Computed example of a mutant assay.
Amino acid sequence: MLVLLHTSPVHVPVFDALRDERHPGLELRHVVAEELLERARADGPAAVAGEVRARVREAAEEGARAVLCTCSTIGQVAEAAEAGVPVLRVDRPMARAAVAAGPRVAVLAALESTLRPTAALIEEEAARAGRSVRVRTALVEGAWGRFDAGDGSGYVRRVADAADTVTGADVIVLAQASMAPAERLTTTAVPVLSSPRPGLDAAAALTRTGDWRVARRVGGE
């Protein structure tokens, strides 16, 4: 069983659909904890580390083989949770693929709290691969307001429009899993990456094998 830790319920049908398409038979259990993102935005991700660890421990006790954290803001503290089961942040495979695409990486996010963790993750993956990168970040103004208002189409349209204005980049990273539908709306010639598909692929491999090396190969290496 793979447990997915979400901070928004919108992710549940997205990952169920990806599972049905790419990993039929994989047992998923969704845990939605919206308060984790609210607290992390207000007080920093470290403020929720204890609760995240407790959620991971509970997943392990209920038989999870792995946990996939779909929130980029708390991904680092989730991976650091030592509670008896491996944890993968959904954006790590995307970051690995971005590093492979070229040294000029543009990161777009709808939440400011996501920008620094995503940039740090890309730099970490670049160091692991022995490559240099130049990461620049941008907040998509007004996008999160659309998301909060339940205007999903307006949200992804703003993200796609922002991606289409990016220049001087080898790859564009959509920092939040909720931004993924915008990937299909962009017209830019620059490759645009989102996290749900490669993240679930890597987590599924980790669930099957328990081997991080296999998960990393699936995730973009």
Rank of each mutant, 00 (worst) to 15 (best):
V3Q: 13
H6M: 08
S8T: 15
P9N: 09
H11T: 05
D16I: 01
A17K: 08
R19C: 04
G25H: 05
E27D: 09
H30T: 01
V31D: 14
V31Q: 14
A40Y: 12
R41Q: 14
R41V: 01
R41S: 12
D43T: 10
A46H: 13
V52R: 14
R53N: 02
R57P: 01
E58Q: 15
E61Y: 06
E62P: 00
G63F: 06
A64D: 04
A64N: 08
A66L: 06
V67A: 10
V67F: 12
L68V: 04
C69F: 09
C71I: 13
S72F: 03
T73N: 11
A78G: 12
A80P: 01
V85M: 12
V87G: 09
R89G: 11
R89D: 02
R92A: 01
A95Y: 11
R96G: 10
R96W: 11
A97Y: 00
V99P: 08
G102E: 07
P103E: 15
V105K: 12
A106G: 06
A106C: 03
V107Y: 13
L108E: 11
L111S: 02
S113R: 08
R116V: 03
A119H: 04
A119C: 02
I122V: 15
E124W: 02
A127Q: 13
R131G: 01
S132M: 03
V133T: 14
R134V: 05
V135G: 08
T137L: 03
E141V: 06
G152I: 03
G154C: 03
Y155G: 01
V159H: 07
A162F: 04
A163H: 11
A169N: 12
D170H: 08
L174D: 11
S178T: 11
S178F: 06
E183M: 10
E183F: 00
L185A: 08
T186R: 15
A189K: 14
A189V: 12
A202H: 05
A203S: 06
G210L: 02
A215R: 06
R216E: 13
R217A: 02
R217S: 03
G220L: 10
E221K: 05
